[in-house]
Structures are given as C-alpha cells and as structure tokens.
Design a protein around this nucleic acid. Structure first.
Lengths: 333, 333
DNA sequence: ATGAAAGCGCTAACAC
DNA sequence: GTGTTAGCGCTTTCAT
C-alpha cells in the first residue's frame, strides 16, 4: 500500500504539502501542486481513510437500524438512504434489529465505537436511555416514525392519522357500511395513530363496535389471523382497513381461502404503498407513504448535521395519498 | 471520550498492560487485571475501533455489493449475511450497484480505502479487472452466482441447470405439452444455465420451437412483456417456466389481464423461491434456491478467510428444490 | 509557500 | 509481569 510518505518522497516535498493538496487546504504553490498530483496519479495513491478518521473523527459512514431488511417497506427505505448517502460519498451500514431492544442497544454501542457519523433509526423501540446516550455522545440521530418533540434528535414520519382517514373515507365512498380495522401493535406510534384515524371516522356510527378492531401485528400471518376473528363475529362485514400492506396481503389470502370475494363482497385497503402491493390479485388499494422520500430526506438531513451544514433538528410530517387499485370498488348497493 | 491512557492512569499501570488485558494477550498478573477491569467498568471505557483498525488493518466490517436491495432475492441474501456477520461481531455495508459496472468499480475503490475486510459480490458483472484488483490487494472476496474456477475468489451458487430441469419436469408431469421459457439476461450465468437446463429437457421434442424462448430481463415488467410475445405466436401454450420469480409474477399479472386462467389453462413455474411468491394469487410454484443458506455460507466463509481460519477458496454448488404451490396443476388431459 | 513535529488511540516489540 | 517506545497513515499547528 502506498502512503502519503511515498508520495512526498517521490515528489520531493514534505507530507504536509501532500496533505494540503489532498485537502485543498492552506497555501501551496501551483507548480508544486501539479507535481504532487502527478505523482499521486503515477503511484495510484489513495489516502487511507481509517487513518484520516482517526484524526478527523469522521468515518463517512452512517448506519441504519431497522427491524428487518426483508420487509419491503424497510428495503425501500434502505435503498433511498443508500442512494442519498452515495451521492454525498457516504457509506451505509445496515442493522437488523428484529425490534429487539437488546440488539438495538448493542448495535448502538458497536456503531459508536466504530466512529459511525450518524444513525437513522427506523426500528420501533428506541429507549429513552439509548436516546440519551446518543445525545450525550453527540451522535447525530434521525428517528423515523416516532412521536415528535423528543429533543436531541430529528423526527420524520407520515401523517398516519390523516392517512387512515383517507382510507376509511375511501371505503365509505365505495359504499361500505361496516368497516373493520386490522391494527398494528399499539406500542408503535404509527399503529396507534392509524387506529386513532380510523376511530375518528367511525365512532358514533350505528354499526360501529369495538370488536371491529382486531390486532394483526403488522405481519402477513397477523393479517390472516385477524380475518378469522373478524368474519366469525361480523359476517356482514363489507370493508376492511388494514394498518399496513403486509397485513392486507395476509387478509387477502385468508379471504380468498374462505371464498370471500374481494372487492365484490369485501373491500380492502392497506397502508404503506409498498411495491409488492401490485403483486397480489386483486392489486391492493392502499394509502401510500412517500417511503423513498422519507429515506432520502432522513439521509440528507443526517449528513447535513454530520457535516455541520446545520445544527437544527427537523420534525417533518409528510403527506400520504391514496392509490386506488382493485381491492376496493364501488358497490352497487 | 475516554481512552486507554485514562484507564492506565486511573489503574496505575501502563497502557501496554491495559492493552494486554483488553486483548487477552501476553502475561498479566491476575490482581492487576482485576483492577484494570474494574477501572474499565467504572469509566465505561470502550476501545476506539478506528485506532485499532489502523494498527491491525482490520475493521470488522464486510461489504455486500448487490444490484438492488429492494429485490426480495437480494434482501433475503442481505439478511442472511448480516445475521451471520453479527454472530461473528462483524458489521455489514450494503452497496446497490444497479448492475452498473462504473458503480461497482467505484464501490470497490471506496471500500478498499476504508479497509473493508472483505466483500461479498452478488452483483452480476464483476469485471476481470476488478477481480484482479482485489486479488492483488488481498481483499478476500466471495462471489455469488458466477462461473467457477475464477481463481482468487470463492464462488457460491445454486445448481441452476438442474433446477431448471426440475421445473420443466414438473410441468411435464403436470401434463403440459407445450412449454415456453421466459429467460433472464444471457450475460448472467444464472440465466444462461437455466436456459440450458430448459433446452436439455425440451429440445428434440416435436412441439419445441426456438420462439418458445423469450427474454424477460429478470424483471416484473419483462415477465409481462414476454407473455404478449408468447401468446401471440403460441396460443396453444400450456406451460411456462420463468427464469426467476419476478418474471413469473409479471407473467401471472399479464395472463390474468388477458383472461387466461392459471393453472387451468396455463401452468406457471418460477425460480428462486422468494417469500413474496406466496403473495400472488394463485401462489407461485417455484424452484427454490437456498437463498438464506447461500448468504449465510458466503458470510461465514468470507469471515473465516478474513480471520485466516482458512486460506482455501471454496466453490460450492447448492441444491435447489421444487416448491409446489397453486400455479401448476395436473391437467385432465 | 513549505517543513518539522506533535498528536489521533491503539498495538507490539523490546527491555527491565 | 510490566513499562517504554516506536509505529499505523494522516492532519494540523507552528516555525521558517
């Protein structure tokens, strides 16, 4: 491996000078610079970034902690983050937490030791303790899908309650008269807000009952399970708003298996807008979050903070929008 | 940040001693050790891994270069790699290449500069030049889905031709009398081998024609497009073997749109075995690669090489197996 | 404008 | 057993 000394020797200058041309910092004679650059090319020299990191305390690497990269929502998010990071010459470390807080904690330790420049946290549970740790150690942090006003970190998320209302309104417009909700885990603010949106739209209506709300754990299996419970008590159900697309897919499968036609007998609307919503038959109507945008903005802002182009925290709430496909349809009723 | 000096001072020993207890290397008095450990705990000291990397030339980080993390095949692979890496206390950098060789090249440069310990290459095109670069610089490399015997790198892949035969045999067993193949890009060895497997099974049969082979670019859109071409010339088609699941999904959508029933009129078999094959309706029969196992083995072997537990290259060919679901069915014929 | 030298935090001879 | 010291490759004062 060729080092800065080799270049210095070969160019007949000191390492300091080479360093200056490398970093375009401080004065350096144009001719000297030209010569140094020439040598750099000849020797195909590239500075060792570990050595650089040791002095600069910057690694040009950010990390992303998420529950599971196999979940299409998070893989899209990760893709956005990596694209953006690359455009700023940053590198991205991916961490699958499975929502286990011991794992999150251990990641944070390791990442900190590795001098990671910042973290995007898309896993569900960031403990108060971990947050404080990161603030104390000045590790820039962007949290996705959390309640605002945490202090010490930026937050980016979608308007979940509003999106949920969009979904319910759409089902109502489609002529549904009894709409259930398959809810995500209520520890998650996103799930909670989507449920809240649903409630606001349906509470007080004659047909509404608490038993129309069933948990689905944000998973395919959960979505399937929810259908059993739902149809048993509400055979007259004609609309379902699933708290995310994964559960909607599960619901779709279960309904199909039970011989219930979607959208003819039951209309179904998901949430998230993952690409795979188009894989199903019928294709899934859903409330789309601007997933890619969330990731891109998170990365951009995080890197701005790392590079001290800003010291402001942000607190963004992005709009959702309905993508109408085939799993909902106006009923002739 | 607390350093090794702080610990040394506080414990009344030299940094060398602290380093010794940290690395369990060399002799150190049990009582001294106890005291040092105590101080480490008190000060909540953790060694700075950047500094360590500078001397050890090891970062405890591997990289994975893949086309697109949003492709479910690669996200499963990535998940396996990260799980395995974590169990060995390694960290994983993800790089989306979009199969662009300039991008691959630039990643390799950056990763090398960052002292990455090794690379798992799951992107399609690894140029001879890049390979040599990595060999020359002693960067351990595991390549997925490439022809064997490259030298200088380990290769892991599935038995593609054999898998393809499994698929065609299954369609034949299901009673299909005219089976088409939607092929992936022939620059990719995987696509080429799958086509070869198909050919071996069908060439010489009375119904076989070259026009039964159409390109589908390993993408959903490609799968859709292929169907148009196919049905126009072969309205009597009754079986399709798609070179990957993404194309199979596209084919399924197109067939559905054209009112062709699967599997009643046409049986369809994919390749890969990505989880999302269960999202479709009907669920997709497919030849499954042991995706997770490929990733896990790749990571394990790579890390073994990094840690010099072995200096052997491997050249693995893993078995595929048929997962029979609903998109193929015995025809009453 | 350029160079000498002191770190960054840690490891590994080598000496005692 | 433990300490001293010279790096690892680079950046950054501080002289000159």
């Amino acid at each position: 491996m060729t080092t800065i000394r080799d270049v210095a020797r070969e160019a007949g200058v000191s390492v300091a000078t080479v360093s200056r041309v490398l970093n375009k910092k401080g004065y350096v004679n144009l001719e000297t610079e030209a010569r140094v650059r020439e040598v750099i090319r000849e020797l195909d020299y590239r500075p060792n970034s570990v050595a650089r990191s040791l002095t600069s305390r910057k690694t040009g690497t950010i990390a992303m902690i998420l529950p599971d990269i196999m979940n299409p929502f998070f893989s899209e998010l990760a893709r956005a983050v990596e694209d953006t990071a690359r455009s700023r010459e940053f590198t991205v470390i991916i961490c699958n937490s499975d929502d286990l807080d011991v794992r999150e904690k251990s990641y944070i330790q390791v990442l900190h030791q590795k001098y990671i420049d910042g973290i995007i946290f898309a896993s569900s549970t960031l403990s108060e303790e971990d947050l404080k740790y990161m603030v104390r150690h000045h590790i820039p942090l962007v949290v996705l899908d959390r309640a605002p006003g945490q202090g010490g970190c930026s937050v980016i998320r979608s308007k979940n309650a509003e999106g949920a209302k969009l979904a319910v309104q759409h089902l109502l417009d489609a002529g549904c008269r009894k709409i259930a909700h398959i809810a995500g885990p209520q520890e998650l603010i996103t799930a909670e807000e989507r449920l809240k949106g649903y409630r606001e739209m349906v509470e007080g209506r004659a047909w509404f009952e608490e038993s129309l709300i069933v948990p689905g754990h944000f998973s395919i299996a959960g979505g399937k399970g929810a259908i059993q419970a739902l149809l048993e008590f509400h055979p007259d159900l004609d609309g379902i708003f699933a708290g995310n697309d994964l559960m909607a897919v599960g619901a779709l499968k279960a309904l199909h298996r039970m011989g219930v036609k979607v959208p003819e007998e039951i209309s179904l609307c998901g949430f998230d807008g993952v690409g795979a919503g188009e894989w199903t038959e019928p294709e899934l109507t859903t409330v789309a979050q601007p997933i890619y945008e969330i990731g891109a903005r998170a990365a951009l802002h995080l890197i701005d903070r790392v590079q001290e182009k800003t010291d402001q925290m942000v607190d963004l709430e992005l709009d959702t929008h309905l993508i109408q496909r085939d799993s909902t349809r106006r009923r002739r009723n």
